[in-house]
């Protein structure tokens, strides 16, 4: 796998990407705005009064141990579940209220959300049809994630790294402004992690915003500009990496101090 620097061209249909959407007034200019977000499943409180926002052009690590509530938060943000209280907005709206969600937000929640008997290209063709994205964009994203050579093969023949990249290709179809990735480095080999890191850096440098969750600190430490650390559904820290460095703290110090149960 070569680490080429990705480019992020506009979708070839002449639409302006960052035209403000009509309708409900945008509360603030945050790309993601989460306010007092809670989600209960019976007795279990998965997310507990979470508040944070994301600014454009940054890569933010959404960190916490397994079961901390990261995935639930992302599902609430993307309209796959309803919060018990509070709200999670993208571009000032509920995800479902976005006119063309795929052109604003690209998301990958699981690394294996494919029909094993379907080719990678057909998977993308289906998403492009539903989102009314021109077919020419499919070749662009396949090229971007370096899967053009295997696109005709059925997904069951793909390695985990290839599946991760196919998921990413689907998220990039609409050339979104925000990428939301849940544990994207899970199961990637070192070369794959390196590729992903360079890819995300390029995405943010070209103006995109990334929210990337992980329970493995090392995967994101070199990629992110800032971190949100949650534990047992609550936000326990929110900081820019340079702020942590200014306090003489490494990200690892902060993370472990905040999340290791029973630590002194």
């Amino acid at each position: 796998m070569t680490a080429t620097r990705p480019t992020f061209g506009p979708v070839n249909d002449g639409r302006v990407q960052d035209e403000p959407q009509s309708g409900r007034a945008v509360a603030d200019d945050s790309i993601v705005s989460v306010q007092g977000l809670s989600k209960r499943f019976g007795e279990l409180v998965a997310v507990d009064g979470l508040t944070f926002s994301l600014e454009p052009g940054s890569v933010t690590g959404f960190l916490g141990p397994n079961g901390a509530g990261k995935t639930t938060t992302l599902r609430l943000l993307l309209g796959l579940a309803e919060p018990t209280t509070g709200e999670a907005l993208v571009f000032g709206r509920h995800y479902r209220e976005l006119d063309e969600p795929t052109r604003r937000v690209g998301a990958v929640l699981e690394s294996n959300d494919f029909h094993p008997g379907r080719s990678g290209r057909d998977h993308l063709r289906i998403l492009a049809l539903a989102a009314e994205i021109p077919p020419s964009r499919i070749d662009e994203v396949l090229d971007l994630v370096e899967l053009e050579g295997v696109a005709a093969r059925r997904v069951k023949t793909y390695s985990l790294g290839m599946r991760q990249r196919l998921g990413l290709a689907g998220a990039l179809l609409g050339d979104p402004e925000l990428l939301v990735l849940d544990e994207p480095a899970n199961g990637l080999d070192p070369a794959g992690v390196h590729w992903l890191r360079i890819f995300l850096r390029g995405f943010a440098d070209s103006g995109g915003t990334v929210l990337i969750s992980s329970h493995v600190l090392a995967e994101v430490a070199q990629t992110v500009d800032g971190v949100l650390i949650i534990d047992r559904g609550r936000l326990v820290a929110s900081a820019r990496l340079d702020e942590l460095a200014g306090r003489g703290q490494t990200l690892e110090d902060a993370y472990l101090a905040l999340t290791v149960r029973g630590a002194s």
């Binding site: 993307l78 309209g79 796959l80 995800y95 479902r96 976005l98 969600p101 795929t102 937000v105 998301a107 929640l109 699981e110 294996n112 959300d113 494919f114 029909h115 094993p116 998977h123 998403l127 539903a130 989102a131 998921g167 689907g170």
Partner: peptide, 18 residues
């Protein structure tokens, strides 16, 4: 049920949240 079994329901609803 195939979409739920293989998880494609997630990308389906992300692309078409309606």
């Amino acid at each position: 049920t195939n979409e739920i079994r293989h998880g494609t329901i997630r990308p389906t609803f992300l692309v078409s949240p309606w």
